[in-house]
Design a protein around this nucleic acid. Structure first.
Length: 414
RNA sequence: GUGGGUGUCGCCUAGCGGUCUAAGGCGCCAGGUUGUGGCCCUGGAGAGCGAGGGUUCAAAUCCCUUCACCCACCCCA
């Protein structure tokens, strides 16, 4: 887990503000669920065989003996809230977004943390392909506004539970004669989660894997129609995508449409964000059968990609350093508050420093202006204001003059 | 869960059994004559070497244990 320091503030805020703005643009409202949930919320939904449940959950008992979990992902928690608050009786679909920390007890490495921040949206109560496409479009818009270039959208349909079972059986039959020639990992997956064999990097070139049947051939008529609708709508919006039958998603509750966004030149865990449809999830959580679709994206991975792509522009807003000379600290403090009242960031230098030291401090704090308050200024109720960047002249001003001079909008009147 | 790597002042790094009561760079603080910065100069503060145990006359330097972090796999965002 890691700390977020002021140096990252600009980038962090850029990502967070953009995410929230895009969510609102698409009509999604904020939902904030607890960091801690009854463990069953995740145990029942995410899937016993998934790594999240089998090895990556922070589990503990509280004083009352209840089994709790630090939330490992957002969708199940949001759906639990949907059921608990009777959102089925709201106009459907219900559009929700969240932005917060998730917890996974896995081994940290590049772009992977035990506390990770995710932004995600859930569109609950709409079975139509249009809902999938809306979420994909929202996600694409987010990346575009963030300035994340060259992401590849890969989509697939993994069908409903029925079609998936048929496909899994067929895949197992296809691979069974070749199991002995597969890698150890694939042999294990053959037993636990055959779909994952298709994902294996080791066996990527194995003829039995390359020649495996595609899940797309096992979709029933309605799943196939749904997937066709998704593609048609994406085409209509001009959203580029690749169909990748090997995307299977690690969580059990996914059904029909699934997708991932990957940066160019990607390594293994480079997926920046992913999503999918989860039509059976609400029912699993005790609600009436309700369709849903959503996406989640990793904030740290976005920041990693933005940093690799190059610095983001951080326009420096006016920031004033007030330098008190002699015993004029009280005047400096009052002046600073007068400037702040005008909506301008202000900090006061430590009393007792030489003017030279104040200049050095103001400079290393990246302030845009220094305001000097000494004997003559204090007696006249003014300050000497000097820009620290560029070659502006030093002038004598009052706090009231500042907003106009620095072209800062004055805060609304009282 | 598996494999590998690293841990010395805030940051980066030197030291790899005795010359270490640990060195340097960056950063920080203070000065460089009377109220003016970013360069430069001078001085200063700041670690006992991740933690615990052991070997030895002697350990930052060797051994063991442990913790943290990093990288890859697994898997996931």
């Amino acid at each position: 887990m890691h700390d977020l320091l002021p140096e990252q503030e600009a980038l962090w805020r850029h990502v967070r503000d953009t995410a929230e703005r895009v969510a609102h643009l698409f009509g999604y409202g904020l939902i904030s669920t607890p960091l801690v949930e009854d463990a069953s919320v995740f145990l029942r939904t995410v899937g016993d065989d998934s790594d999240i449940v089998s090895k990556e959950m922070y589990l503990f008992d509280d004083r009352g003996g209840d089994r709790l979990a630090l939330r490992p992902e957002g969708t199940a928690a949001v759906c639990r809230a949907y059921v608990e608050h009777g959102m089925a009786s709201r106009p459907q679909p219900v559009r929700l977004y969240y932005f917060g920390p998730m917890f996974r007890y896995d081994r940290p490495q590049a772009g992977r943390y035990r506390q990770l921040w995710q932004f995600g949206v859930e569109c609950i109560g709409d079975a139509a392909a249009a809902a999938d496409v809306e979420v994909i479009d929202l996600q694409r818009t987010l990346y575009e506004r963030l300035g994340l270039e060259a992401l590849t959208l890969r989509i697939n349909s993994i069908g409903t539970a029925d079609t998936r079972h048929r496909y899994i059986d067929a895949l197992r039959e296809h691979l069974r004669p070749h199991v002995a020639t597969l890698s150890r990992d694939s042999q294990r997956r053959f037993e636990t989660n055959v779909l994952r064999v298709l994902d294996s990097k080791e066996d990527a070139g194995h003829p039995a894997v390359a020649g495996a049947p595609s899940i797309l051939d096992y979709l029933d008529a309605s799943d196939a129609a749904h997937f066709a609708d998704v593609r048609t709508l994406l085409d209509g919006l001009g959203i580029a995508y690749e169909i990748d039958p090997r995307i299977v998603r690690g969580l059990d509750y996914y059904a029909r449409t699934v997708w991932e966004f990957e940066p160019a030149g990607a390594g293994g865990q480079s997926t920046v964000g992913a999503g999918g449809r989860y039509d059976g999830l609400i029912e699993l959580l005790g609600g009436t059968p309700t369709p849903g679709t959503g996406m989640a994206t990793g904030i740290e991975r976005i920041m990693l990609n933005l940093q690799e792509a190059g610095a983001i522009s951080t326009d420096s807003l006016p920031a004033i350093y007030v330098a008190p000379l002699g015993d004029h600290l009280p005047t400096a403090l009052a002046t600073a508050n007068a400037i702040r009242a005008a909506g301008i960031s202000t900090q006061v230098g430590q009393a007792g420093r030489s003017l030279r030291a104040h200049f050095r401090a103001a400079d290393s704090l990246a302030c845009t202006h220094i305001a000097i308050i000494g004997d003559s200024e204090a007696s006249k109720g003014v300050m000497q204001l000097k820009p620290l960047r560029g070659d502006g002249a030093q002038i004598e001003v009052t706090a009231a003059d500042l907003p106009a001079m620095l072209s800062v909008e004055a805060p609304p009147g009282k």
